[in-house]
Design a protein around this nucleic acid. Structure first.
Lengths: 194, 194
DNA sequence: GTCTATACCCGGATAGAC
DNA sequence: GTCTATCCGGGTATAGAC
């Protein structure tokens, strides 16, 4: 088995284990056992446990930054932004749960990013809420993002083939947009017969 | 300082640290330092680190089970269910982030509960989605729950006094309900003039 | 490229004095 | 109730043979 091939296997195994047990909760020995070798063999392919995580995070993090730059470029439609995050969560479904579950992972990511992940999220919320957003609008924007994350992973779990069908994607997106939009009529004004 | 008083201080400190660094990411030494004593002193008040967490979790877990039994009793309105979870997240705001972030914590909770937390969540989703729910309805129900968690914590962070105002609570609830409701008209059927 | 063996550190927990 | 000192286990990482 070529070195590069083994490297891929390690990443695949690590991805599963991290998703199930978290990054901190997964030991090098866990990965080695699943791989069928010893921990020492692992260190031939990766210099450290953190580097395994970094290898896993490289692509999704690049996608993420692409979204952020396109977001900084101009006023993107909420639909575009939310759709991009649905796709990001779909591509790297296992990692999505890993990332914000483990503070150690958060810290690692913050090292590799220009701005902290909290700041980045705040930017996305601001972009979704629009320029003159009151607190209610910010709440709704946070809600829309929560929907994207929660509903996407729910849809992926419910899907028989583990893939996000176009219908499901549309449902998630529509739900997020409904969350984002203010209530059309919170309470029908009294004195106005239907 | 009385023992009972110190115990409360420990719980308070632990709550903060767990929220910031996660349960696994927080060491007994961290807590002791913040407390101004040594780790050995901590063990006079709590037999183990896990027991500190258990002390923190006791109340919110009881609330949670209260919700579940009332849910099992009869068909509660979605509004009631979602409202109950908003309140639960508000009362134990710091813990909410701790609980499902750390697999170790999840495991501990599952030990103390009759059913696994995954099963419980599935029950709530089912109750929200209704008896004859298709996959889209289940997705929306998951989304509504995600809104409750995400938007409540966002609202708490945005609030100047760190408290959830009635207005904000209403906004969160309305948003969750919009997420839950199917799209009124996803696409106006063609051939039917407005 | 993978092994055995082991160094090293850190975190949870205990013993026993005060 | 709190201290000093220490044990013990487990986890990352390395050395060096094969």
């Amino acid at each position: 088995m070529s070195a590069i091939e083994t490297k891929q296997r390690i990443l695949r195994i690590a991805s599963e284990l991290f998703a199930r047990q978290g990054f901190t909760g997964t030991t090098i020995a866990d990965i080695a056992r699943e791989l069928g070798t010893t921990t020492a063999a692992l260190y031939y392919h990766f210099p450290s446990k953190a580097d395994i995580l970094a290898g896993l995070l490289a692509e999704p993090l690049a996608s993420y930054q692409r979204i952020m730059t396109s977001l900084a470029a101009g006023a993107a439609a909420p639909e575009e932004i939310l759709g991009a995050f649905v796709d990001l969560n779909t591509e790297s479904r296992e990692l999505g749960t890993v990332i914000d579950r483990d503070p150690a992972v958060l810290a690692m990511i913050d090292e590799r990013l220009p701005r902290s992940s909290r700041e980045l999220m705040a930017e996305v919320v601001a972009a979704l809420a629009g320029p003159d957003a009151d607190r209610a609008a910010l709440i709704r924007a946070s809600a829309a993002l929560a929907v994207v994350k929660g509903a996407t992973s729910a849809a992926l779990e419910l899907a028989p083939d583990g893939k996000l069908s176009p219908d499901d994607r549309a449902e998630v997106l529509a739900t997020a947009l409904r969350a984002l939009a203010p209530d059309p009529m919170p309470k029908p004004p009294p004195g106005r017969a239907s």
